[in-house]
């Protein structure tokens, strides 16, 4: 299956990745090959097979509703690329 540059661009947008147009074509080619490779699964008959999202059969693990100590504000902001000492700062959503 070959992926068009458009299809790849759509996926890139979902993944919040941008590629220069040359890079995009290269990526489209590589992704196409990988998709071809994984496509071999289509030959497996999986009729009636249950999906396996977890490797083990474990269920219903919960914790009691108890407040535990978290991080201080300084700790939580410490790795932030931009903050005002109280909040994380990000560029505005809409145009400036």
């Amino acid at each position: 299956m070959s992926l068009t540059a458009d299809e790849v661009a759509k996926v890139a947008k979902l993944a919040r990745l941008t590629f220069e147009s040359e890079e995009l074509e290269k990526f489209a080619g590589q992704l196409g090959k990988i998709v071809d490779f994984v496509d071999q699964l289509s030959e497996v008959d999986t009729e009636g097979v249950e999906e396996m999202a977890h490797p083990l059969d474990v269920d219903s693990v919960v914790r009691p509703d108890v407040v535990t100590e978290g991080l201080s504000r300084d700790e939580s902001l410490a790795n932030s690329p931009s903050h005002d000492g109280e909040h994380f700062l990000v560029p505005p959503v809409m145009a400036r």
């Binding site: 914790r63 509703d65 407040v67 100590e69």
Partner: peptide, 30 residues
């Protein structure tokens, strides 16, 4: 285990899990 009380000073009721820090894992509240 972070508190849900309303009105605390910003970013003081957080921990690696709810900050989404790399490697932190969720555990369900019963």
């Amino acid at each position: 285990g972070c508190s849900t009380i309303f009105g605390a000073a910003s970013n003081t009721q957080v921990c690696p899990v709810c900050l989404g820090l790399p490697g932190a894992l969720p555990v369900l509240n019963a």
